[in-house]
Design a protein around this nucleic acid. Structure first.
Length: 532
DNA sequence: CGAACAGGCGCC
DNA sequence: AAAGGGCGCCTGTTCG
């Protein structure tokens, strides 16, 4: 019988890779094998294309470094996280060691901190055990749990695992980033690059204007000092948030707001950032799959999910290459329509807010967008109330869906995404009414955001599969919630764009079957990320 | 002195 | 016009 799964310990630190063939249900079909090197893994991939059972996303890194790509995976630690939460055992560790401990009836220790690729130490817990045996054992238990769970959880486990492969591959590929363009953009906005630690000319000038307007020097970066300065000028502010400052009539307001915006750019994505995070023309953030409660990814390093629009021009394809920039149009309201089966809310592929505005809000797209976002985020103020009443009348199923999720949160019940990602409950303790309402807003948003994250995860997996299957030279180089970037030779750009649309349609079917709700992608083929 | 927290704001 | 869900990460500030 042909093994359909292969557990893999990539070794490292001088240790060779080890594998063990498994049946689909996780039982071993052969003894453990030691391979001569990682190229032997590539050979197995070519011959059998198994589903590789890996301990954690990081396990893929040495393979990529050796030029070995895997087709499919089961990521034991990521799946453990899903299963532990689905079981209502929140906050329990879900690392491999913890999973083994649970299997053996022991109380798991907290997860070890993420290890760097340093040399092994005497105290490296991982060096001590038999990682391959642990992976095999925990995977077997997980397959039994998944067999008893629904098809949603099985799809979620596969998609989360595919996400681990995508994440590592994107880090390895890197986002093409032109330091010269970045430097030019910064210089245009901030003035010439200052000495390290220095303040750019435009920031210094704006700070002086703020000083002059208040009639005394102050540190514009200090909220306390700014509040005191405004108080002396007769304006009692609660905070120094820009929207609050904006409402004040004082000569310091304009230069202060300009200062805050540019200072933010300088400190978060300025020259220091460039020096730290861009090497050899690539920005390589580390993606943390499932790093957010909702299943959205987080990143470590470089604030990759907050690249400001002002510097996106620095993201440029290599000569002869293009970027395919694709984002899902109005993903979350479409997800809500599919979840609640309120299909009238999302009847076609056209801009959902524009269409909704035409039907309900006299053509005011802004109102339509505010109404829907308020429904999904739980906003009630700011004129949202009237708009929500319209939605409640016209789309009762959709509104009932989010309101039930909110009620569940307020009452301390569990909520789950469409595929079964489980939202951790509120921390124990006597709930104040205000805290209960906050919890309701959280769970109201969770059901939509987490399901949207699942859709995006399946899109990524499908897109990766399409590109691999067709031997496309295009590479996924960035992913941000509902947006993907491909780096592709110019001649393959249209084909890559088509693959994105296909993957999006497939993701919709995989989650929602024959639902009429469509998930159109806005796709552009550009040289620079800033181009429309 | 560094760690932890708060305020603030970038992105979705 | 007003301020609602999720993050990461900066600076300033306070704590130990």
């Amino acid at each position: 019988m042909c093994a359909v799964r292969v557990a893999l310990d990539p070794g490292g630190h001088g240790a060779p890779p080890r594998v063990r063939r498994l049946f689909e249900d996780g039982t071993p079909s052969s003894p453990p094998e030691t391979l001569p090197d990682l190229r032997a893994v590539a050979a197995l991939e070519r011959e059998h294309a198994p589903r590789w059972v890996l301990a954690r996303p990081r396990s893929y890194r040495p393979l990529l470094a050796a030029g070995v790509e895997l087709g499919r995976a089961h990521d034991v630690e990521l799946v453990e996280g899903l299963l532990v939460a689905a079981d209502g055992r929140f906050g329990e560790p879900h690392g491999l060691a913890a999973a083994v401990a649970r299997l053996q009836g022991r109380v798991p220790e907290p997860d070890p901190p993420e290890v760097d690729d340093g040399p092994p130490t005497l105290f490296d817990a991982r060096a001590a055990g038999d990682e391959l045996a642990d992976v095999v054992a925990v995977h077997g238990a997980q397959q039994r749990a998944l067999a008893g769970a629904g098809p949603g959880m099985r799809l979620l486990a596969a998609a989360e695992s595919a996400g681990a492969l995508v994440a590592e591959e994107m880090t390895a590929a890197g986002l093409p980033w032109r330091p010269d363009v970045h430097d030019r953009l910064l210089s245009e906005l901030l003035g010439p690059r200052p000495l390290p630690g220095g303040r750019p000319a435009k920031l210094a000038a704006l700070a002086e204007q703020v000083d002059a307007a208040f009639g005394r020097p102050l540190n514009p970066d200090s909220p306390a000092e700014v509040l005191r300065a405004f108080a002396r000028a007769g304006h009692e502010l609660q905070t120094t948030r820009s929207w609050e400052i904006k409402r004040v009539d004082h000569p310091a307001v304009a230069p202060l707001l300009a200062y805050k915006e540019l200072a933010r750019l300088h400190s978060a994505h300025g020259w220091a950032w460039l020096r730290s995070w861009v090497h050899d023309g690539r920005f390589r953030p580390e993606y943390v799959v499932g790093g957010v409660v909702s299943g959205r990814w987080a990143t470590r390093g470089g604030g990759a999910l907050q690249i400001p629009k002002a510097v996106r021009g620095a993201v440029r394809a290599d000569p002869g290459w293009r970027l395919v920039v694709a984002d899902a149009a109005q993903l979350e309201p479409r997800v809500l329509a599919a979840l609640s089966r309120d299909h009238a809310l999302a009847p076609g592929e056209e801009d959902l807010y524009t269409a909704l505005a035409a039907r309900e809000f006299g053509g005011d797209r802004g109102k339509a967008k505010l109404a829907l976002l308020s429904a999904m985020y739980g906003q009630t103020s700011g004129g949202a109330g009237v708009l929500l009443a319209t939605l409640r009348r016209r789309y009762p199923a959709a509104m009932a869906f989010v309101e039930e999720a909110a009620r569940a949160g307020e009452e301390g019940r569990l909520v789950r995404s469409h595929l079964g990602r489980t939202c951790p409950p509120a921390r124990a303790g006597h709930e104040q009414p205000a805290a209960a309402r906050a919890r309701g807003r959280f769970t109201r948003n969770f059901v939509v955001q987490a399901t949207a994250a699942e859709w995006a995860l399946v899109l990524l997996a499908e897109l990766r599969g399409l590109l691999r299957g067709s031997g496309s030279p295009a590479r996924l180089v960035f992913f941000q919630h509902d947006e993907v970037l491909l780096h592709t030779p110019a001649e393959a750009a249209q084909e890559s764009a088509a693959a994105v649309r296909t993957a999006a349609a497939t993701a919709g079917r995989r989650l929602f079957g024959d639902s009429p709700v469509r998930f159109p992608m806005q796709v552009r083929v550009v040289e620079g990320y800033d181009e429309r």
